[in-house]
């Protein structure tokens, strides 16, 4: 299979509006991936499937990943004048990486037996702009997996034929696979609470803590 740089160059001529980036992978045996903006994701996917040299006709795996807001600390060396002398001082530069949701497609070719090409798309943020184009019209096999990502992460796939929850029930609220998901507090009455159950019970109803009764030891 041709190199990822070559695929990127050909994609840029075929889909001129696409913003494509190659993401490095620190793992030696892992694959690097193509990051595509959401607006041109569908056109890119169609190109990858229909191109005669690539023929990525098989979408093996679709994964959702949650990247919440994160403070990135980076050490940089800054030249500063200290006591009249110019010195290099290490400074920690803090930047805030805004959170986003990411969808990763692993594409193979069944007819040419090569792959994988890893395609990624990112949403604008994690709150209100979580739309991405659905690639189900290109690869039918993504249908249930995209539904699963909608269900567990809350990515809304535009033009998906049947976007409903699939693993959780329809009335469920929230997206359990997000990193900041908090389980609902569904504590049930416990007649004899102890240990951590006791702590939980105290929040819900008054609990009478009896003094511990030690058995008498006869001499």
């Amino acid at each position: 299979m041709e190199a990822l740089e070559q695929i990127k160059a050909r994609l840029e001529t075929a889909v001129p509006s696409a913003k494509i980036e190659i993401l490095a992978n620190d793992c030696a045996l892992g694959e690097r991936s193509l990051l595509v903006d959401g607006a041109s994701g569908f056109a890119v996917a169609q190109f990858l499937r229909d191109d005669a040299q690539l023929k990525l006709d098989y979408c093996s795996n679709v994964t959702g990943v949650d990247w919440p807001d994160k403070e990135l600390a980076e050490k940089i060396k800054v030249k500063q004048v200290v006591d009249g002398m110019e010195k290099e001082v290490e400074e920690v530069k803090k930047t805030l990486r805004h959170g986003y949701l990411e969808v990763v497609y692993h594409l193979y070719s069944m007819s040419l037996k090569h792959g994988p090409v890893v395609l990624r798309m990112r949403t604008e943020n994690r709150a209100d702009q979580t739309h991405l184009p659905s690639l189900t019209p290109v690869w039918r096999g993504a249908e249930f997996q995209e539904r699963e990502i909608y269900d567990l992460y809350g990515v809304i796939f535009d033009s998906h034929p049947d976007l409903r929850r699939i693993l959780m029930w329809d009335e469920f609220e929230g997206f359990p696979m997000r990193r900041d998901y908090v389980e609902p507090d569904d504590f049930e009455y416990e007649p004899t609470p102890h240990d951590e159950v006791l702590d939980a019970a105290k929040k819900h109803y008054p609990v009478e803590v009896k003094p511990e009764v030690k058995p008498e030891v006869k001499a």
């Binding site: 992978n25 793992c27 892992g30 694959e31 093996s60 795996n61 692993h106």
Partner: peptide, 17 residues
């Protein structure tokens, strides 16, 4: 080490990754 990887085998039911 940091990084990402996709591994797959032919399980009796199909491709398990």
């Amino acid at each position: 080490k940091p990084g990402e990887v996709y591994g797959r085998i032919e399980s009796p039911k199909g491709e398990l990754g």
